[in-house]
Computed example of a mutant assay.
Amino acid sequence: MENLENFWAIYSNLVLTLGTNSLLALSIYLTLSCGMLTLANAAFMSIGAYTGAILTLDHDVPFGLAIAAAMALPALVAFIMGRPLLRLSGVYLAMATLAFGEVVRIVMLNAEPLTGGALGLNGIPQLTQPWHIVLALVLVLLLLWRFRRSRIGRAFDAIREDETAASLMGIDINAHKTLAFVLGAAIAGLAGVLNAHLTFFIGPNEFGFDRGVEILTMAIFGGINGLTGPVLGAVVLTLLPEVLRVFQDFRLVANGLILVLVVLFLPKGLWDPARMRGWFRAKGGKT
């Protein structure tokens, strides 16, 4: 029992970060499952983080209401921005959402009276408990699981495969893309507010281009053929820097090398149900 307490005292933040990163990977999984390559999730995370932190730090708002606001505001921004942005596709959509993320970061940087500017917000109350993150992750997974098996999930798959064919089938392309974008923003905002009340401090540089690429990498690395993939990718890429500490100065090189090998030899990510079924059939045939 004492060993467990010592482990939790040392690694509790890392363990809880696995949960928030899993939420972020699932947030971009939604847009990827609808065929959209977006890089705005770091911006939505920052909106949720700052919204929740300002409400609890400056206005003593109950944590539950702060979480609701931190999900609602990114969702509202995504709904407003989604109409013009989602008319784009491919690399143009990625560039537009990347620019949007940079605009949000600059706004946070310059709104010093509200956000603390470059110094960020310090002294955020540590209100995030382990059960908050576990409950949030379970609820999001249940919601997305239901989505995958509903008409909406099938519409997402159809849009990802061929927008023209999906449109001819009577699927409202813009409505479904907007729904994926808005829900992804709300989940990213949820991850942001939970993370802000876990780490005591947030600053604008935490939510820049690097963070956006990291979120995308977690989903692609794990695989987007199911809900297991993004969570697995988030867990592996969160733990990888800790595991590679023994390499010291070569840690980043080893990290990059592992990512390159996965992209080359596992192009559909770590979690590929089709590949696994083939592997199990091959094993069964041998026995």
Rank of each mutant, 00 (worst) to 15 (best):
A234M: 05
G223V: 14
L239V: 13
L139G: 03
T199H: 14
A185Y: 06
I171P: 04
T228Q: 13
A186V: 04
L227V: 09
G184Y: 05
G256N: 09
T164G: 04
I202N: 02
F247Y: 08
M218L: 04
R154W: 07
L183F: 03
F147G: 04
R146H: 04
G223Q: 12
V253P: 00
G212W: 11
L264Y: 04
L232S: 13
M218K: 06
A196S: 11
L264T: 05
L142Y: 05
L183M: 12
V231E: 01
R148W: 00
A180I: 09
L139W: 01
T238Q: 10
V193K: 10
G223K: 13
A165G: 10
V253A: 14
G208E: 05
I202K: 07
G222Q: 05
A186E: 06
M218Q: 08
G153L: 11
I258S: 03
L137H: 04
A165D: 02
P230Y: 06
L266K: 14
L143Y: 05
V140C: 09
E163C: 02
E161C: 07
L142Q: 03
G184C: 02
L216F: 08
E206R: 09
M218S: 07
E206F: 13
E206T: 12
D162H: 07
V213N: 10
H176Q: 10
M169L: 15
V263W: 00
I159M: 06
L143H: 01
E206C: 08
L227E: 00
V213I: 15
G189Q: 07
G208T: 10
R151I: 12
F147L: 15
V236Y: 02
I152Q: 09
I220F: 03
G208D: 07
L137R: 06
L137E: 07
I159G: 07
G170M: 13
L266M: 14
H197R: 11
L240V: 02
A196H: 07
L194M: 08
G170F: 12
L259R: 08
T238Y: 03
M169A: 15
V260T: 09
T164L: 14
F250M: 12
A186N: 09
K177T: 01
L239D: 02
L261R: 06
E161W: 01
I159H: 01
H197P: 09
W145D: 11
V236P: 00
S150K: 10
L257E: 03
V263T: 05
A180W: 00
V262H: 03
G229N: 07
T217R: 04
L198S: 13
F250T: 09
E242S: 15
D172Y: 09
I258L: 13
L143F: 10
N225E: 14
V262Y: 01
L179Q: 09
L183K: 00
L144F: 12
L237G: 03
I187K: 06
R251A: 14
P204L: 11
P230C: 11
I187S: 08
V193G: 06
L190S: 07
N195R: 13
F201K: 13
L190P: 01
R160D: 02
T238V: 12
P230I: 11
H176W: 05
L232A: 15
D210I: 15
